[in-house]
Design a protein around this nucleic acid. Structure first.
Length: 366
DNA sequence: CCTATTTGACCCTT
DNA sequence: AAGGGTCAAATAGG
């Protein structure tokens, strides 16, 4: 199972694209002789973008493991679904085991890219009822959030176990504007959805028709063009947290939310694929199922810089988490951690061998 | 019967 | 300790 892209490559591409876009803005500003201050700001952003990209490149140079066949940390290993098998072995939960298990999973989750979309539900989409992002999600929780009017819903990829796909998302209805849903994606899909890599599960279910295979370079390019032309996306909070709440882009969503009013079970778009960032862009844009949608309708009035929706705010801290978890970084598919950190904590109990790593293996050991 | 959702409990992080 | 995220038993729906 090979994937053309992994996380850092995606981030790299994002940074480069962002730099490109910012440079264009700068050119525009120079043409229109804007204020020196805003020009300076743009230059700053461009520099930062390219610095990040270079950093990522630097990590990769040392990472021999990633140069060949980049593999997601959540690699698809074709393991059969197994969550049900283990239940019988463990009626009473071994708490300490579970704790360490969750700790480990937590580390893994920290590595996952995170980004936030804002989804506006329009009356049109209410009628159409067509919105989905080409991925099927399964709700696994709902929580009342302090200070928020509406509960937050938690979804994971339907194929978590069958395809080792660890993408999750959270959906939070906006307090101010109930037609807006903040969707925070975490981790990218490694499942066949949106990619054609993996054949459907043995017993194809009703979701299988959702996406067609759009995964080729041409379409990836087109996706990027679409992005360039129509998309407004925040590079989320390089500095301030408020930016996370700034509208990045909006597009119609499914009506289910409003109809059900309480439970968020729709599937907005904007999925970023861990292993193939471009294909993931193509998915929301080009899925026939969602073709009616003019995504990124730029209905928000903010002037946002184009960028990739990875949450760079968490980049550093996540990296640190990763480092403390990973004592043998050389083989990490995520990143080669050959730079110095202030502190590197070692977890003696956690040998993280990314090569053979599969989240399911943790589950199986429950 | 199988799969998805609901929901209270549990655990982790802050 | 509080709040947030996830689990998993119970339940619903096809």
């Amino acid at each position: 199972m090979e994937h053309g892209w992994n996380w850092e490559q995606g981030t790299l591409v994002g940074e480069l694209i962002q730099g490109l876009e910012l440079a264009k803005q700068l050119r525009l500003q120079l043409d229109t002789s804007s204020s020196a201050q805003s020009t300076h700001l743009l230059v700053q952003k461009i520099l930062s973008s390219y610095e990040k990209a270079l950093q990522i490149l630097k990590f990769n140079v040392g990472a021999s493991a990633t140069s060949g066949v980049p593999e997601s940390p959540l690699s698809i290993n074709g393991s059969p679904r197994s969550d049900d098998l283990d239940k019988d072995n463990q009626d009473s939960r071994d708490v300490s085991k579970k704790s360490s298990l969750m700790l480990k999973i937590g580390f893994c989750r920290k590595m996952l890219p995170r980004w936030t979309d804002q989804v506006r539900v329009t009356s049109e989409s209410l009628l159409e009822g067509t919105h989905d992002d080409g991925h099927s999600w399964r709700k696994y929780g709902q929580k009342d959030i302090l200070g928020a009017k509406y509960p937050r819903s938690y979804y994971r990829c339907t194929y978590r176990h069958s395809q080792d796909c660890w993408a999750t998302k959270q959906v939070q209805r906006s307090d101010e504007d109930p037609t807006i849903f903040e969707v925070t994606y975490r981790g990218a899909h490694t499942c066949a959805h949106g990619n054609q890599m993996v054949p459907p599960p043995a017993s194809p279910n009703k979701q299988e028709h959702k996406s067609t295979n759009l995964n080729n370079n041409n379409q990836q390019l087109q996706s990027l063009l679409s992005l360039r032309n129509g998309l407004r996306v925040d590079t989320e909070g390089l500095d301030n947290k408020e930016m996370a709440l700034a509208p990045s882009f909006s597009f119609p969503s499914t009506p289910f939310e409003l109809l059900k009013s309480e439970n968020h079970s729709f599937s907005p778009s904007g999925v970023l694929d861990n292993n193939n960032i471009l294909s993931s862009f193509s998915s929301p844009f080009m899925s026939p199922a969602t073709s009616e949608l003019n995504y990124f309708s730029a209905s928000q009035s903010q002037t946002n810089n184009f960028g990739v929706i990875l949450d760079t705010r968490n980049f550093e801290s996540d990296l640190k988490g990763l480092i403390s978890a990973n004592t043998s970084a050389t083989n990490s598919p995520i990143m080669d951690l050959d730079f110095s950190l202030d502190q590197v904590e070692l977890d003696p109990n956690f040998q993280f061998d990314a090569r053979g790593f599969s989240p399911n293996s943790f589950l199986r050991s429950k």
